[in-house]
Every structure is written in C-alpha cells, then in structure tokens.
C-alpha cells in the first residue's frame, strides 16, 4: 500500500486516496473551437508511461483536495507531490 505525502495533511496511506489518472491532460478552454481530433485526445488519450509519471490523486477520506503526485509506475517510488494549483517542475 502506497504512502502518499499530501501537501495539506502529511503522509497518509493509499486507502485514504482515490486515483485520478494522468495529471498532464489539459482541458481545452470553454467556448473555444476545437477539432474532433483535439477533443478526442483530451477525452480519451492518456499517457501511461513505464517510469516517471505525473498523476492525480484525490484525498477523498482526508482533506478532499486533489493533488498531483509524481510517481514511478514501475517501482512506485514517489518523487514529489504538489497541491492542485502548484506549478509542477
């Protein structure tokens, strides 16, 4: 079970969190014309790398904040965690 550092609460076990997927996806701005391809990429295309990955976790049984977690998907090593509005490196 992973041990995730929540920037708001400190280190907590994985069972307090819900996984939120790829954090590098950017939603197209409201009212902006987007092509089918562009929209499809946003809705369906997710990175699933082996290795370092920036992903979203929701501290659902804690502070209810969405956080960004930089994790190695093959070793589960967590390098850094960020608040939702924090800029990532």
């Amino acid at each position: 079970m992973l041990y995730i550092f929540c920037p708001h609460c400190g280190s907590r076990s994985q069972n307090e969190f819900a996984y939120g997927g790829d954090a590098t996806v950017k939603r197209p701005e409201l009212n902006k014309e987007v092509s089918d391809q562009e929209w499809d990429n946003f809705v369906y295309l997710r990175k699933s790398p082996r290795g370092k990955h920036l992903e979203l976790w929701h501290h659902i049984s804690g502070c209810r904040q969405w956080i960004k977690v930089e994790r190695d998907t093959s070793t589960h090593e967590i390098f850094k965690t960020y608040k939702a509005d924090e800029l990532t490196e």
Binding site: A18, G20, L56, H58, I60, R64, Q65, W66, A84, D85
Partner: peptide, 13 residues
C-alpha cells in the same frame, strides 16, 4: 462531489 471538486480545484481554480 468529487467531480465538482475536480473542476473547482484543477480546471477552474
């Protein structure tokens, strides 16, 4: 609730 929080915290902060 998670859905609303997602948009408020990440998409339209």
């Amino acid at each position: 609730l998670s859905h609303l929080e997602y948009y408020l915290q990440l998409v339209w902060p």
